[in-house]
């Protein structure tokens, strides 16, 4: 059965960003066809998974405060069913990496990720988690968590506003909805442990070689 385009309430498919990456993933999965019955079951499981993404409370800096705002009354991610933030990595479905990851923190993050039970997802929130952001030429900052763990969704911003975090979560829902759990490889198992080196704009200012 073909995997269809994932639907999200209130936002039409066309208005989402980065649909081509998603379509590439769908095409990849559709190469290995499965039968209809399993496909239906898959839909059900994906529906369950995508609406019950419990995140690990993991915040290192500013973005964490915005994540708290998302949980508070005004934005209320309970509407999506995400409100059960678990403090134990065993029970969490996704790690929302909100904040800078430093050299000292990197092993901790890696270990937390390894401690989580499959299926697990990673969302990189904010510039620091995506690329090191403001501190990317610091001696003690990891330039993007995708160097140590695979990232599913990137939410840019410094920090991203709560709506942007919700939008990112919906993007993740879309990604979860196209996965295959039965009869066919899980998109997660297809994933390489450490993804390709991301493109990074290399133009560090040094302070000396600038025009006066």
């Amino acid at each position: 059965m073909e995997i269809k385009r994932p639907k999200i309430k209130s936002i039409p498919y066309e208005e989402f960003k980065d649909n081509d990456t998603l379509e590439a993933m769908i095409a990849q999965i559709n190469k290995e066809r499965t039968n209809v019955l399993l496909g239906k079951l898959d839909d059900l499981i994906n529906w369950g998974r995508s609406n019950s993404l419990w995140s690990l409370t993991f915040a290192t800096s500013c973005c964490g405060i915005e994540f708290m705002s998302v949980g508070a009354a005004r934005y209320d991610f309970a509407r999506f069913g995400f409100e059960v933030t678990r403090n134990s990595p065993r029970q969490a479905d996704l790690i929302m990496c909100a904040g800078t990851i430093t050299h000292k923190m990197a092993p901790v993050l890696k270990r937390l990720y390894d401690q989580m039970a499959e299926p697990k997802y990673v969302v990189a929130v904010g510039g620091c988690a995506i690329s090191g952001g403001p501190f990317k030429d610091s001696y003690h900052v990891l330039n993007g968590i995708d160097k140590i763990i695979p990232v599913d969704v990137y939410i840019p911003g410094c920090p991203p506003r709560p709506e942007a975090i919700l939008y990112g979560m919906m993007q993740l829902q879309r990604k979860v909805k196209i996965e295959k759990f039965l009869g066919g490889k899980n998109a997660h198992q297809n994933r390489k442990e450490i993804p390709d080196e991301p493109i990074i704009v290399t133009n560090y200012p040094t302070g000396e070689d600038k025009k006066e």
Partner: peptide, 23 residues
């Protein structure tokens, strides 16, 4: 401590004064 030590003071030494402010 030090799990979020980002070396801001060192980075400031190579930034112009307006560039320090965002840190």
């Amino acid at each position: 401590c030090g799990y979020i030590h980002r070396g801001i003071e060192k980075m400031c030494e190579s930034r112009t004064y307006p560039q320090i402010l965002p840190f």
